[in-house]
Amino acid sequence: MSAIDERFAQLRAEGKKAFLPFVTAGDPSVEWTAKLLRQLAKCGCAMAEVGIPYSDPIADGPVIQASYTRALNSGVRWKDILASVGEVSQQVNMPLVSMVSYAIVQRLGLDRFLDDAQAAGFAGAIVPDLLVEEADDLRRRCRERDFSLIHLVTPTTPAERMLQIAESSTGFIYFVSITGITGERNELPAELLDKVAWLRERTELPICIGFGISRVEHVRMLAPVADGLIVGSAIVRRFAESNDPQQAMLDVESLATELMAALN
């Protein structure tokens, strides 16, 4: 069992759902990312996703894209992220999941990526551009190491394929709410509930929903069918729009607290 599996087992026993904030590593700096992660753990987030900046993120909207560009332009490297996460993961009781492009995983090499990530205390990875068909090598290694490999399903995924993805995934299943890129949305599609409910009946794995979620209404709508909700752009944007990271962190904390209250 990875730390993610343990955390979900615990949440289920308590009848609770997970709130998963997404933070961009290194925006505005790795030090601030570390502070933010500690703060999010303190206010009760079940686990957190750490976005590894990538130069060409295809699934990301303008907010996360720009945060990646800022982080890379400020010179943040893989080793800096590892050092910072390595410190935080010792201090918090909140499993950390990396969100990382396969371009990076492939370049580092699968074994080195997993060695590095596990040594830093990451409990799993979401690799948004790695389809199940291409994932055999990484999946095998992740299973040997109890490192969760979280696959995504989307509104365009046919039913049959959803089951195949559920079979391949460990830790949880990332259910993408909309057909599109990351970013806050006013409304989420109503048919999403049926699709998640359909999959819910066919897998034991926790299902977390992400993309577009930023408001209490979204949380109320999705909470009944999901095991967890992921919020990214709404958090990253608060740092992008503020010159004062301390204030941005407090804003993120109050957003997280508000959304968590609606979730549980």
């Binding site: 699934a59 948004p128 790695l130 696959h151 399903v153 989307t154 509104p155 365009t156 599109g180």
Partner: peptide
């Protein structure tokens, strides 16, 4: 070669 894209594009 291969196919390294987000799941959203697979069906298309």
């Amino acid at each position: 070669g291969g196919r390294f894209v987000p799941e959203t594009l697979t069906a298309a």
